[in-house]
Every structure is written in structure tokens, then in C-alpha cells.
Nucleic acid binder design. Structure first.
Length: 468
RNA sequence: GGCCCCAUCGUCUAUCGGUUAGGACGCGACCCUUUCAAGGUCGAGAGACGGGUUCGACUCCCGUUGGGGCUACCA
């Protein structure tokens, strides 16, 4: 096989959607697997909605994920002349025709048919203008759109993930390929560019399946062999509906903000619709080595943030404190928590096995550094409620027991255990209230270590504030 | 409405005609910790429905139902 060339072609009309990111990842994986070329093409032909800012967000998102492109970014808007030439070539060859119907005439016809309960279809016989009227408008230099004459034959292809998909030409309306202002419509622009960029494999979302027969017809009319198509399933929200910004985080940037690591995000995305077998944590080289379009699921997948966070936790525990220091410091600065002079390494090590995201980890660190960050969470509040009087009571006993103790973890532990023994308390009933007083929550490193990290004065102050 | 795509635990998935239908997340229990996690062990939990084909169907075919996509001078 010759060197495959794939492309990711987002339109810069919004953020980088996780579904788009997954599509990009699959393209990238395919290119890496087969020593191919990954082309990035920005489809900015919709002047109304496309912005440079959106383009930048897409580029940044891909870079963050580590999905690198070999060629581009190319901007579709720069190829308008070629698009137009292709449309005119089709026109000259008699494979497309001029449509002098104005937008108004068209929408009037559409409204009329739909009002009478019918289904609007563009039908050359009934909607096309009479020959003499066409000649008249043509002679008068009236503006026209170019419409592609869809062949009345079967159009089928062997999809790399769906196997055979087949359409009948009669079910496809003659569609416009060039607007009356001379700009190309999506289907033509895509085919024209994919031909020019010598794309061999079009790997894109399921939602493009119905565009594919139109594009294949265009390839044929242009005298080119269509590429291999692979339509990957969509990503849905927990409600089973299309993942939307409104209901849940749908943008790659949202997960970056949540403190998800790029490697975890990439791993998770790869496993949406694709599976190498039984493992969940798949390193990049193995991902590349095992990737095959035929192993992609046909069914849409629901994006489960809980599992993503679990996976991120796995990646977090694989990293050591030094690798986490920089991102945690960034978050700390964002939170406005001073950290100079503190041994962040020790705190990060203690907290990282208990955190699932960088953000969560940074909050844990922040709480140890700054008493004003203590916010009682649900479980902390539940514990307080459950223990009632004993909460403050045990806390007072602990405070008293800690007064004369040397402030290091082993000494603290000894003192607290002695207290429990003396008072006949379960250790947990001594430790958990301290945990809640110091962090607001019920989860932390062993309490004696926590006390040592927070420091004598600050720890005692927090205990006093809580019993007070 | 028309055309097309899809259908295994709540979720992500394995299975590619013969399995007690396996794993992961989440959930529950237990173990380990005289305190939290992490980790380990165990448990509950699935082939949408109805017909075929076959010695034998989750797997192949047809239908039903249910989801989804497209149906623009959007991409």
C-alpha cells in the first residue's frame, strides 16, 4: 500500500468537541500505525460562524492532547478558486447545471409543499424553470447556483467500520455545489480538497454517512477514485443525547480545566469506540501498534466522566511528585495560595493517591497550606452530624493531649493512640474529627502525618476554631 | 414523513456459530491499615423483542420496537 494520507477537518465555529478530538485521535493513530501523513485542514468556508479564536482553540486543544499534524493547518477558504473551477468543470461536462431559481423562489416552493403535508424534494422536472425561462435569465446575466446532477444509480461503498453501505441515487436530491456568489458548498469543497491533498482515508464522524454518497458521486464525476471511508460512531452524553455544552462538559478545554492529564484524556478517548482487548490503561506506543479501523465499534458511546476521572487517578499515581509539582504550583497560583518555602513534594506525595484530578490535588495541597481554604464537604458534615456531642468532645480531648507533644509524626501518633486507649475510644473516633477539623473532609493521609504537615500552631488553631 | 446507520451488565467494552457470556468504571461486602485513601479478594449486574437458517446462535438472515444521523445557496 502506498503511504496513507488522512486528515482532520474541523470547522472553527466553536470549541474543540470531545467527539472531534476523538476523531482526530483516530486519524492520528491510523497515520502513526501505517507510517502515514496526518493533515490538518480548517474548514472555514462558513464566513458567518468561523473565527480565528475558534481556530486557535482547536489548535491548542490538539496540541495539549499531543495530537500533532504533519501538514497544515491549511485553510479551506484559500482554495475557493479551485472549488469554483471544479464546479465549472462539472458544468462544462454536463454533469452539473445552472439553477436560476432565487433563494426566495426556492423557499416559497419549499414552504408550499411542506404546508400541504408533503416532503420537499428538489426535483429537476418540476422545480426546474422552463427551458425558455432559463435561456432568458441566462441571457440577462442572472445569478445562478450550480447544482450537481445526481446519477440515478446505486452508490455504495465498503466502509472500514460499517462494512457495506448503499444508497440509491434517486433518494438523493440534486444538491448545490456552488452558491450564486461563486463560493463552494461543503460537499464540493471537501471533495475538491481531499483530491488536491491526495487523501487516501477519510476517517470522520458517523454524522457524515449521508454526505458520503454525494461525495462519491462527485469523485466519480470529477474522474477520481474515491478514498476509503471510515465512519466512527458519535459520542453521547450521559442522557443518551448528543453531548452538548449545556448538559455536560463537551469541550476538550473543559477537561483541561478540570485537571485531567493529556495522557489520561487521550487514553480515555481512544477507548471510546475502540478497544485493544482487555486492558484499560494503554500506553501510546501500544495504542499505535494495535490500532485498526476494523476494530472500531459501530455503536455510539456515552461519555462517562466518572471513569475518565478514575483513569486520570491511575495516571496521577504513576507520576511522581516532581512531575506533578509544576502543574500543582500553577493551580496554587491560580487559587492565590502562597507556597514559597513549603516542601510541596511531601504534600503532593501524600495527597496524590487520594486525588483524581490535578485540580483536586491542588485543592488538597492548598488546604494544608492555608487554613482559610478549609471547607467542610458533604462527608465531613455527615460525620459531624453523626457524632453529635462526641465530635467536639473528642476534639477537645485530642487538643489537650497534643499540647505538650513534640511536633513530629511519630510522637503525635503515639500521643493520640495513648489518648484513645486511656479514654476507651475507637481510634477512628479520635482521628476522623481531627481530619475534618483540619481539612473539612474525611479523606487524607494518616492523621498524624497530616498534623505534622500542617504544623503545630496552625493545626492547634484549626482545632480550637472547630471546637470553639 | 423519506433515506441511512445502530442495538451485550447503569456506563465503556471482549466475544468474530459451540464460553458457567470475560474485563473495566461505578455500586455492595470483606481483607489490609488500632485513623482516610490506595491496593487485594468476593458479590450483584447484560445479549431489546419475534421469527427463521443451523446439530448448535449474542454471533448469520428477515421483521418489530427503540435510539441516532441526514433531509439548507450550514459544516
Amino acid at each position: 500500500m502506498t503511504q496513507p494520507r488522512v486528515r482532520f477537518a474541523p470547522s472553527p465555529t466553536g470549541y474543540l468537541h470531545v467527539g472531534g478530538a476523538r476523531t482526530a485521535l483516530f486519524n492520528w493513530l491510523y497515520a502513526k500505525r501505517h507510517g502515514g501523513v496526518f493533515v490538518l485542514r480548517i474548514e472555514d468556508t462558513d464566513q458567518q460562524r468561523s473565527t480565528d479564536a475558534h481556530t486557535q482553540v482547536i489548535l491548542d486543544g490538539m496540541t495539549w492532547l499531543g495530537i500533532t499534524w504533519d501538514e497544515g493547518p491549511f485553510f479551506q477558504g484559500e482554495y475557493a478558486a479551485r472549488h469554483k473551477a471544479d464546479a465549472e468543470r462539472l458544468l462544462a461536462a454536463g454533469k452539473a447545471y445552472k439553477d436560476f431559481l432565487t433563494t426566495e423562489e426556492l423557499s416559497t416552493a419549499r414552504a408550499r409543499i411542506e404546508a400541504s403535508g408533503g416532503t420537499f424534494r428538489y426535483d429537476r422536472a418540476t422545480l426546474g424553470l422552463p427551458a425558455d425561462e432559463i435561456a432568458r435569465r441566462d441571457a440577462a446575466g442572472a445569478p445562478y447556483a450550480i447544482r450537481f446532477e445526481v446519477p440515478q444509480e446505486e452508490i455504495a461503498w465498503d466502509d472500514a467500520v460499517h462494512d457495506r453501505i448503499s444508497w440509491q441515487g434517486r433518494d438523493i436530491d440534486d444538491f448545490i455545489i456552488l452558491r450564486s456568489d461563486g463560493s463552494a458548498i461543503y460537499n464540493l469543497a471537501v471533495v475538491s480538497d481531499d483530491i488536491a491533498m491526495k487523501i487516501t482515508h477519510v476517517i470522520r464522524g458517523d454524522d457524515h454517512i449521508s454526505n458520503t454518497p454525494k461525495q462519491i458521486a462527485l469523485y466519480r464525476a470529477l474522474g477520481e477514485a474515491p478514498p476509503i471511508f471510515a465512519h466512527v460512531p458519535m459520542i453521547l452524553g450521559t442522557d443518551g443525547k448528543k453531548l452538548s455544552k449545556r448538559r455536560s462538559a463537551a469541550a476538550v478545554g473543559d477537561y483541561q480545566d478540570m485537571g485531567i492529564l493529556p495522557a489520561a484524556m487521550r487514553n480515555f478517548l481512544a477507548l471510546m469506540g475502540w478497544s485493544p482487548g482487555q486492558e484499560e490503561i494503554v500506553a501510546e506506543p501500544e495504542m499505535i501498534a494495535r490500532f485498526a479501523l476494523g476494530d472500531i465499534q459501530k455503536k455510539a458511546a456515552v461519555f462517562d466522566t466518572t471513569k475518565l476521572e478514575w483513569m486520570n487517578g491511575q495516571y496521577l499515581s504513576m507520576l511522581d511528585a516532581d512531575e506533578l509539582r509544576a502543574p500543582v504550583m500553577r493551580q496554587l497560583d491560580l487559587l492565590g495560595v502562597p507556597h514559597a518555602g513549603h516542601d510541596l513534594g511531601a504534600i503532593i506525595t501524600a495527597a496524590k493517591t487520594r486525588a483524581r484530578t490535578i485540580t483536586h490535588l491542588a485543592q488538597q495541597v492548598a488546604v494544608r497550606l492555608d487554613g482559610s481554604r478549609v471547607v467542610r464537604d458533604e462527608k465531613g458534615a455527615a460525620l459531624v452530624a453523626k457524632m453529635g456531642e462526641r465530635f467536639a468532645g473528642n476534639l477537645r480531648l485530642a487538643t489537650a493531649a497534643l499540647q505538650a507533644v513534640a511536633w513530629d509524626a511519630p510522637s503525635i501518633e503515639t500521643a493520640l493512640k495513648a489518648l484513645a486507649e486511656r479514654e476507651g475510644l475507637k481510634l477512628g473516633d479520635v482521628m476522623q474529627p481531627i481530619r475534618v477539623a483540619l481539612t473539612g473532609g474525611t479523606v487524607s493521609e494518616p492523621v498524624h502525618e497530616l498534623l505534622a504537615v500542617v504544623g503545630r500552631n496552625e493545626a492547634l488553631a484549626r482545632l480550637a476554631a472547630t471546637t470553639g
